[in-house]
Amino acid sequence: MVRVTKLRYGFPIGLFLFFYLDGILGAVFPQQLFSVPYSMSSYLVVLWLVFAVFFEDQIQIPLSIWAAVAGGLFDVYYTGIWGIFVFVFPIVVALTRACYKAFPINFLSGLLVYFIDITVVCSLSYIGNLVVHMTSASFADMMVDSLAPTLAYNLAAYVILYFPVQWVFNRLKN
């Protein structure tokens, strides 16, 4: 359980801030993020969830539930199609937890874990959209036009935000 720390308020605020930033950054910098045919999808909300796994320490945040909530909002507000991210986000949290148990997390190994996470998010959302006929793009198109730029963007976000978010979590825990 989240003990009475500032994290109790800080974590949801950060989660929603990053959730909104995903959409707003796309609207504010469309030419940089969506220059045809490439499209970088911003998944800062996933970054926040992954950082929470890394930095929560003894404080057990009910992350799977928060991930499902964020995923549900992502589905309803951004895509309009229920049932993709509401399951993908908790899967990513579970995956990150498993990696965290398997080996010690530091800046570099965390980067690799986040690499896997983003690949999972992109692939599963592609499969979901393919199944409901929202896209007809081929797997190769998906790799080159969507996955590669998305990975580049999100890993850059990881590198830039790792230490600031660590500092924020340390402040909130005490």
Partner: peptide, 15 residues
């Protein structure tokens, strides 16, 4: 005004 853009490659959609 456009207030957000769907962060997904499969739906070119704005809000």
């Amino acid at each position: 005004n456009v207030i957000a853009r769907t962060p997904s490659a499969w739906q070119n959609q704005v809000i």
